[in-house]
Design a protein around this nucleic acid. Structure first.
Lengths: 347, 347
DNA sequence: GGGCAAATTGACAACGCTGTCAAATCCATG
DNA sequence: CATGGATTTGACAGCGTTGTCAATTTGCCC
């Protein structure tokens, strides 16, 4: 005899209302086979009518899992993070999992301790590991040792049994560079990303390959080190634009740095895109809020995270090990790039 | 006789190793009274030695505690959200709680069902309710009925027993408006925030009071409805700037809309701050990435969230009911505002 | 050293769900 | 219409912890 002390609906209430045993409700809810179609529908309808939500704790206790998955990240730009978070969350909700966001700051051993702490304290069933954390061999080894399922998000160089979701950073950077070349640009500056991100190298590769394919000499002085943050883009652009023969276009490895380039241009009275074309990467919110709006590569952050979560959930349900997924990018041409009337261009 | 099938250490193992009953271990771990000092130490030492971590699921099911707190939000700008998230997270970590972010989209009954779903499913110990959700009387009533502890974040008009963290939006808007007036502006446009946010009204009040205090007539046509998003600021600014007698300054109720104002100005070839001063509100990341950098009001989002979490944790530990906390704001003067040389100004 | 209240400890029943396995029902076939 | 295998359903025992309440030990006084 159920007591209504709490006001909370329990599986028992649903079972009674639908005229079945609690186990049958459980089966219907968990998409298990061997429930007759009409029974299943009746139960699901009752569930909705009573606004029933199974308790994670009880499910976790009985099923020996926590229905919690952790997403660990380091220090991404806010816009990127929010996209990722919501993508992963969306998939978690569908699977009736909850997402625990977990920012780590340390390095090396401290990082490992931090992540182990998360695992031990929360009992997460699995982890989504974003770049650049998923490039740490130590971390990977630690997770392996603990036998905790995880997936990786964003490119990475390591071979490993775990699945991942990524995109073709090199191809995207190649295309963007080719696009700039197509606009007539020959002196194209490049601001690279944080050196610890594998994607940074990939994007630089794409830039270099595009130059090469179009027989434009690579000039090291046109490439500046950035760190994926606004200020680093600003600094790098100031330097590039102060050169005796400055670039007519600057391709920054993410939107935040591209916004920094725009600021440098504004400060120096350089018109964009008339005197300087600027391209970014990621297509986060910032690309649409700066002036002029940024031409950039759309990185499907939301979908990447959704996919990563999906892969993890598959691993957890011990379906056949899913394959890595590569999602498509897309060039988004806005107002920050244009034809160059640069007459110095040789070759 | 405990079986080790799972590999995971259970309270039973600790109890056996320490030579006590599981209940005593439970007591020691939860800092309950009535455990002899030496017993407690012996248990805690054993816990550490065996690397024991209690199961959240079991705790949540058996006790009244999940060590989870939920932060519910609707659709804030990414930069604001991330600040809030990290502020709340920081306090949660200190208290060994985990934070569950939960975005809601519905309205009315759907909203309530959504939140009930979170509570039922996760068994969160308490909730941080951000604006404008904390202004919904229905939601508040639902939470009360469920007797779930919660705190509110951001201003709100309702009297209620629960504590909250906020800032003086009206005072801040007053000061910003007065600052613009001090620069010589007499025709000051205002873009209000989303009408469902209490803060929107407060900020408008501050604007109006400042005008009044400086004997500047309030002109309804200078006030446009915005919705706290970039595009609404862009639209509103286009309208304001197309007026026969356009404002010489525009004060937007948040930074995203102020960025929209900047874009409108750029589109129309209006120089900022020479021909138009622009002020924002919040001092989120975007304020430093647009050109010119935004003069704005620094809202202590991180600290507000940290404080809200702190209040909630106090409520949960049933300390004497904490009082609401009001945090200070700060005017941040950057490059988007300047003196006006407007000669039309009368009075 | 006995007596008594307070402090400490323990036995056992929840908590709400899933896993296991047995019971009931269905359906095709002879 | 009986038979039997496949499908569907249900009864019941945990899952690992905390709450309740009873049992035991301790400390203090006479």
């Amino acid at each position: 005899m159920p007591k209504e002390s709490n006001g909370r609906t329990r599986i028992h209430d649903v079972a009674r209302a639908a005229g079945v045993a609690i186990k049958t409700v459980s089966r219907a809810l968990n998409n298990e086979p061997n429930v007759r179609q009409d029974t299943r529908e009746r139960i699901l309808e009752t569930v909705k009518r009573l606004n029933y939500h199974p308790s994670l704790s009880a499910r976790g206790l009985a099923g020996r899992r926590s229905y919690l998955i952790g997403l660990i990240y380091e220090n991404p730009s806010a816009n990127y993070l929010v996209d990722v978070q919501h993508g992963a969350m969306a998939r978690c909700r569908e699977g009736r999992f909850q997402l625990l966001m977990h920012q780590v700051s340390g390095r090396g051993e401290e990082l490992e301790r931090d992540v182990i702490g998360l695992i031990d304290q929360t009992g997460v069933d699995g982890l989504i590991v974003t770049a650049p954390l998923c490039q740490s061999n130590e971390l990977i080894r630690t997770l392996d040792r603990r036998e905790i399922p995880f997936v990786r998000m964003a490119p990475n160089k390591m071979r490993h049994r775990t699945p991942y979701a990524d995109m073709d950073d090199e191809g995207a950077a190649y295309e963007m560079t080719a696009y700039l070349i197509g606009l007539g640009h020959r002196r194209i500056g490049f601001i690279s990303g944080h050196p610890e991100h594998f994607a940074s190298g990939q994007r630089l590769n794409g830039y270099r390959k595009a130059l090469k394919a179009h027989r434009i000499a690579y000039r090291a002085s046109y490439v500046r080190q950035g760190f994926f943050i606004f200020e680093s883009g600003l600094d790098a652009a100031r330097q590039l634009l102060a050169m005796p023969e400055p670039p007519t276009a600057i391709f920054a490895s993410n939107d935040d740095m591209a916004a920094g380039v725009l600021m440098a241009a504004h400060e120096m009275g350089i018109a964009v895109p008339d005197q300087l074309s600027v391209a970014g990467f990621d297509d986060t919110y910032i690309a649409r809020t700066v002036w002029p709006r940024l031409t950039t590569v759309h990185q499907p952050s939301y979908d990447l995270a959704y996919t990563a979560a999906d892969l993890l959930l598959r691993v957890l349900s011990s379906q056949p090990a899913p394959k890595p997924v590569r999602l498509p990018y897309r060039l988004v041409c806005r107002a920050s790039t244009g034809l160059t009337d640069d007459s110095d261009s040789h070759s």
